[in-house]
Nucleic acid binder design. Structure first.
Lengths: 278, 278
DNA sequence: AACAACGATGTACATTGTACAGTGTACGTC
DNA sequence: GACGTACACTGTACAATGTACATCGTTGTT
């Protein structure tokens, strides 16, 4: 048994010199089981014998999301989730056999499934795309931990797929090819994510470092003045001071979002125009 | 002594219920010391007594960068860095008193300081901005760990400032205000970072999960077919299949970069045009 | 020669994900 | 009604992390 695990892991990290079993890595990954969980299938051929389960996948996922929202992703540990649902740490693995990785996949899909998706009939494409961006921004604001979730190989559950379908529809009727529509959506969502990332850690830093933005800038400015020759870095000193000192992190992220979305929409607009002329 | 640390930490995380000293957090943060280190100042009033230092800040930072480049940021531990320079784990703190956080700041600045910055005289603004983007992309390709570094409150060392000055100069002569120039640069770099992020974890996933992109897609497609009603998600099934199955992760990131940069430059172009007319 | 300042090191602790072995429960079959 | 089997649950254990603290050793100054 142990041999099997070790062997499979050696395959997993081929090229590694050491052969010990590292901690905190893979549990038992299995795409099929994860998919079944995402769609809440009772893949087991009907459970009969044994004690009745005292929890459900949903309750576990719910607890994890609450913890992540309130205290950040780092606070989501198997132990904290277990405590939140009133079970022992290892019990969680009964409901989420894939461990923490699988749990995160489930969390992501649930959040997306719940998001609001207002009807966009009658809106122009710019309003539709802006609305999609705003919705994603709102999701990130409510669940900052989502920003750090990888977007390649997303958990293909009902939430993710519903969201994808809805967002693709914003590009209906523009004469773009399938590949272009996907690229355009990726482009928009990439911008929103990058902006949310900046906003989130700008918001987190004051607490994490026990220092306000203003205090940090003041300290840097005073010390940099003695070290840096302003004539060697004219743009950096002038623009950096203007961009940094004046505005707090939160306001800055807001301005960057509006500025960026204007550029994004203008950029897409040119693609659309070009396509219409063909 | 211990009291002082604890007290300062209570201030640090005011609002937290518990009062224990958590692990792996702050070492001794001090903006002034970090800045001195970044600029390699001998802030101490001339070291005289005591054994000669056997290492330098640069050697430590160098080792850390090498490890990060070759094995990823997770492999950069105080212990692995110490081993690489042939010292005991705790010795590292002699040269980088701020611990891992400060070490990361130093790594970032060194990488930026070394980056190539070719002369851009004679180029049009589109070429200049594209070149800036390409350079950042190349840096991320060579040092994927940089992607995860926070960009708010960057380490204001010689590398970061030189890079900032250089990149701002790409927007010279366009008639944009200081605030607009900073916003435009942030916009461009944000796109590059978002793209690099996707590319990096698309590249990392096959190794990390012992599963090729093709195998993953095949597994998902087969199972999803039984669960999802294609008529309910027409766009998602059609476009998702086209966008996902056909291309591997690496090629996809490349295409997304070219597509995105075209939109970014078009978007900025409209801003520039508008400014010229005024 | 004694002292003071500073570099180096070993030990210790709290925290993480999860493998493994063991304990108890409830249903189906005899 | 007794029994066995499948399953839920739990406690223990381990390797790895950042870094506080106390100690030891080395060097130049007094």
């Amino acid at each position: 048994m142990y041999i099997v695990q070790c062997t499979s892991y050696v395959v997993l990290v081929k090229g590694l010199e050491t052969d010990f079993m590292p901690p905190n890595k893979p549990a038992t990954p299995d795409p099929a089981r994860t998919l079944s969980l995402l769609w809440r299938h009772t893949l087991s051929p009907l459970r009969t014998r044994g004690p009745r389960p005292s929890l459900t996948v949903d309750r576990v996922v719910e607890a994890a999301i609450t913890i992540a929202d309130e205290q950040g992703l780092d606070a989501v540990t198997m132990r904290s989730v277990a405590q939140a649902v009133g079970a022992s740490p290892m019990s969680v693995y009964t409901y989420v056999p894939g461990g923490k990785t699988e749990l995160l996949d489930l969390m992501i899909d649930v959040v997306y499934l719940r998001a609001e998706r207002p009807d966009q009939g009658g809106l122009g494409w710019r309003e539709r795309v802006l609305s999609v961006a705003d919705q994603n921004r709102a999701i990130y604001a409510a669940h900052p931990w989502l920003i750090h979730a990888s977007t390649s190989r997303p958990p293909l559950g009902p939430g993710v797929i519903t969201k994808y379908e809805y967002e693709l529809s914003a590009f209906d009727g523009l004469g773009l090819s399938d590949v272009e529509v996907d690229a355009a959506l990726t482009f928009v969502l990439g911008f929103v994510q990058a902006n949310a990332l900046r906003a989130a850690d700008a918001a987190a830093l004051p607490e994490a470092t026990a220092m306000t933005d203003a205090a940090w800038w003041e300290a840097q400015a005073e010390l940099l003045g003695r070290v840096v020759d302003p004539t060697k870095f004219p743009r950096a000193t002038r623009i950096g001071e203007a961009a940094g000192a004046a505005q707090g992190g939160a306001y800055q992220a807001d301005a960057a979002y509006r500025f960026g979305m204007d550029r994004v929409l203008d950029g897409l607009g040119q693609l659309v125009e070009r396509q219409k002329k063909v």
